[in-house]
Write a protein that binds this DNA or RNA. Structure first.
Length: 277
DNA sequence: CTCCCGTCTT
DNA sequence: AAGACGGGAG
């Protein structure tokens, strides 16, 4: 791995932490050390601008203050509260995670990244960011912001892989200040070294939304959330006659994502589609 | 148009 | 390794 000169580390730490003291953003999830609350915020923040999460997060924590209340809820209500955040499967996975936490972890969100990784919706980044922000654990978590900062400030190649980035991130982490450091990096990346300003492209990108598959998916799901009894595939087909994609295949995908269920009606009455019970 | 405190599936 | 996945702000 590439060696980082100690002076460069000092410089970076000072620059980022100074900026944070001066211009750091204030968010509700930064005021708590409750692991469940941090988990909720981290899942919501995946691929989602922080400012757009605030209201949803507050409403969510009001309705689901702990894993037990979340696990006991209907999926429909979960998705209604999630609506507007995007990537609806995240909401379903979060509820499924709450279920597992209740069953296997005595209702307490685990603090070990290895255990967190086993929960649905929690991957390499989030499994580390939760202990970082909730427990101030001295480990590195690399998201798109932090990746960009390391590349720009330390002169790394843009093709640097996730493993090497982790090594570098660990090398520049100020011991004992993990939470502050990661918050500072987030803000420095979001407010100073933006993607636009640096020209560093994120690892993952997405295609145009309007008229896309996921655009129709989201509209269908929203319709189903409004129709308590569900809708038949007939009704859906009629409503989305303009959809260029195969609606049945689209519904199958929604079902695979555990968001909806399809039931064949008796006497060849078609297929009823509804939000999964 | 790009991108956002990524994860899951194939 | 590549593609799918929401929705809105900049």
């Amino acid at each position: 791995m590439k060696r980082i000169p100690p002076d460069d580390i000092d410089m970076l730490q000072h620059k980022v932490l100074s900026f944070y003291r001066e211009h750091g953003r204030v968010y509700p999830w930064r005021k708590t050390t409750d692991r469940y609350a941090v988990m909720v915020s981290e899942i919501m923040l995946q691929q989602t601008q922080a400012d757009r999460v605030v209201g949803k997060y507050l409403a969510w924590m009001e309705r689901y203050p702990d894993p037990a209340s979340l696990a006991a809820s209907s999926l429909k209500e979960v998705l209604c509260l999630w609506s507007g955040l995007g990537y609806n499967a995240r909401g379903e996975r979060l509820q499924r995670a709450a279920d597992i936490i209740l069953r296997d972890f005595d209702g307490q969100v685990p603090g070990d990244p290895e255990l967190l990784m086993t929960l649905p919706g929690i991957g390499p980044y989030t499994s580390r960011s939760i202990p970082v922000f909730a427990d101030n654990m001295d480990i590195a978590a690399v998201d798109t912001n932090i990746r960009r900062i390391l590349i720009v400030e330390l002169g790394l190649d843009e093709s640097t892989g996730p493993k090497q980035l982790m090594d570098v991130a660990r090398a520049v982490l100020p011991a004992g200040r993990s939470r502050e450091w990661h918050n500072a990096l987030m803000d420095y990346g979001a407010l100073v070294l933006t993607a636009r300003r640096t020209g560093i492209r994120p690892v993952t990108r997405q295609s145009r939304f309007e008229g896309s598959r996921r655009w129709y998916r989201s509209r269908i799901l929203r319709d189903l959330l409004e129709h308590d009894g569900g809708m038949t595939t007939e009704e859906i087909s009629a409503r989305y006659a303009d959809c260029p994609y195969d609606l049945d295949g689209l519904l199958d995908e929604l079902e695979k994502d555990r968001l909806i269920e399809q039931e064949a009606l008796p006497d060849d009455g078609g297929v009823m589609v509804r939000v999964r019970a």
